[in-house]
Structures are given as C-alpha cells and as structure tokens.
Amino acid sequence: MDPLPRKLLAITILCALWAAVVLVAFVPVEKDAVVGSYRLHSSWFLQKEARPARIDLDKDGELRVYADHGEVTLRAKWWWDAAEGFLRSDARELDRRIRGYHGWTGTTLYWRLAPSFDYGEELEMQRLDR
C-alpha cells in the first residue's frame, strides 16, 4: 500500500478508536446497574480508616451499611444521580460518598474513605450478588 492511503487508514482507525473509548468512558450509569450488595476491596496500605463491611443498595431506595459482625449500623434512603455518577442519600455522611462510572467491564463503584471531597483515596466496591 502507498504511504498516503496507509496513513489515512491509520488516522481513520485512530479516530474510530478515539470515538469508541470516549463513548465507553462516558456512558451514564443508571440506577439499575448500581442496585446490589457490595463489600469493599481491601488495600494493603489503607487500614486505619473506618469502613463498612458490607453495603446493600436496594431497588426500593433503601441503603443499609453493615459492621464487621453483621449488625446494620445505618439505614438511609438513596437515589442515583445519573448525570454526575454519584449516589445521593438523605444520610449526610453517605451523600456523594459512592460514585460509579462505566468502563470496559461494565459499571464500577468506588467508596471514598474520607467523608469530604478534599482527598480522593477510594476503594473499589466488589459486588457480592453476582
């Protein structure tokens, strides 16, 4: 193949890949994709911060947070802000604490360790019901 068509082909492929990855990265996460039971991935290093043992996000809008021994430590209402990809809640400490985005393997949720947005350390939330 001549250099020019080869270059045009390469540019076309790059443009197509660009559009594809942008589409995947910015697909809005819907509430149905978030409903489920989760536990947090552990980290070797982030051990000091308190964190729930399990979180249930029910379809009817109830959220339950569990301690290590299975006791429910918090019940609250939740709804999903699809535009921003954040879980909203009437419990102040959980409002916008969980966020999600769409990637190559589907929806991934993250739990922010600090209640505020100041610093961003997050742990991935692992589904228990799949």
Binding site: E84, F86, R96, Y101, G120
Partner: peptide, 26 residues
C-alpha cells in the same frame, strides 16, 4: 501505547481529581 491508553482511559477520565473537583464547583 495504543492498547494501554484504550484500557486505562475510562478510569482516568473518571478519576477522583476530575469528578470531585467538579463537585466542589457545583
């Protein structure tokens, strides 16, 4: 580089820096 960029981009484009900063503004 191409495969790596495609693989990591969804995570990078939704990283806490971008998302949380936007929340501060909002």
């Amino acid at each position: 580089v191409l495969v790596g960029t495609l693989a990591i981009y969804p995570t990078n484009a939704n990283r806490p820096d971008l998302v949380n900063t936007r929340m501060f503004s909002m």
